[in-house]
């Protein structure tokens, strides 16, 4: 070490940091790979059409995820149609209309903080407001509203980031040509940023479908032998079904849980794939 030049020392540090960086990257990847391998090894052979269309059952071999899957699809859909307009609307307001006052920056800090609130807290809020005060009971609607609250901060923040990325020269040009503020947003800013906005929304919703705690608090059930047919129906979702199976004494249920996890993972990957696809598609399209 002593008879090294400064340049040599720096190079050594450089390399050491590179190795450290690679190790960090692979640490996460390897753990993920082990997890996925483990799950797939246990659960893959259990997945067949019957598993998807069967109702829950005490016999592990006969049990399926139909009602849980349908519950998840409903929750996904309702959460999306509630959170999308509100989140994007709030994002547009804060970014385009809101004045940079003290009040606005306070609001901003609060929204960022809300994104870090543990999900169970949202569950308790949902239980009190939607289930009890609004009288929605343990329904899909109450669950979706709760999850919407949970992901709103994420959507707002990502919408704002996407809007920020639109060059101000475009907005200025639009206004200079006589367009009103709303025309500028609707015809220029939003189309240019929609890829980013949608990515944020889809990633936020992917997070929502993995949530269990707030839904259990709101009153999602464990055994529901029918698929919901309206937003006021009671429901169960995939993560609850998985949790329920994992905690059974019989090992066959662990296999079911693994199989259900694979399907939930596929669901999430699919949604992330859609997000990436739309981002690329819209990014390519934008030519000024």
């Amino acid at each position: 070490m002593k008879n090294m030049t400064n340049a040599q020392k720096n190079k050594l540090i450089d390399n050491a940091f590179k190795v450290f960086g690679i190790a960090c990257t692979f640490f996460g990847l390897i753990i993920l790979a082990i997890l996925i391998f483990n799950i797939v090894e246990v659960g893959l052979s259990r997945i067949d059409w019957d598993f998807i269309k069967d109702l829950p059952s005490r016999r592990a071999q006969k049990a399926g995820i139909y009602t849980a899957l349908m519950g998840t699809v409903w929750i996904l859909f309702l959460t999306a149609i509630i959170a999308f307009p509100i989140g994007v609307g709030a994002g547009i307001y804060l970014e385009e209309y809101g004045k940079k006052t003290k009040w606005a920056s306070l609001l901003e800090i609060n929204i960022a903080n809300l994104a870090g609130v543990p999900s169970i807290i949202y569950g308790l809020l949902g239980l009190e407001i939607f289930v009890r005060i609004f009288g929605l009971g343990g329904s899909l609607l109450a669950g979706s509203l709760t999850l919407s609250l949970l992901i709103l901060p994420i959507i707002i923040v990502s919408t704002r980031e996407a809007l920020k990325a639109v060059p101000s020269s475009i907005k200025d040009a639009s206004v200079a040509l006589g367009a009103s503020k709303w025309q500028t947003i609707w015809n220029q800013t939003l189309p240019a940023s929609i890829g980013g906005v949608l990515t944020g929304v889809i990633l936020a919703i992917s997070r929502a479908i993995g949530e269990t705690a707030p839904l259990i608090v709101v009153g999602a059930l464990a055994y529901v032998p029918f698929a919901p047919s309206s937003p006021m129906d009671e429901f169960t979702v995939m993560p609850i079904q998985i949790f329920n199976w994992v905690s059974r004494p019989q090992h066959e249920f662990a296999v079911n849980a693994a199989a259900a996890i694979i399907i939930l993972l596929l669901f999430t990957f699919m949604m992330n794939g859609v997000a990436v696809y739309y981002r690329n598609k819209w990014q390519k399209k934008i030519k000024w």
Partner: peptide
Amino acid sequence: GAAVVLGLASCGGNTE
């Protein structure tokens, strides 16, 4: 997208 999701959700109401 919404229609597909809804269709998927409602297709199983009266299976079993």
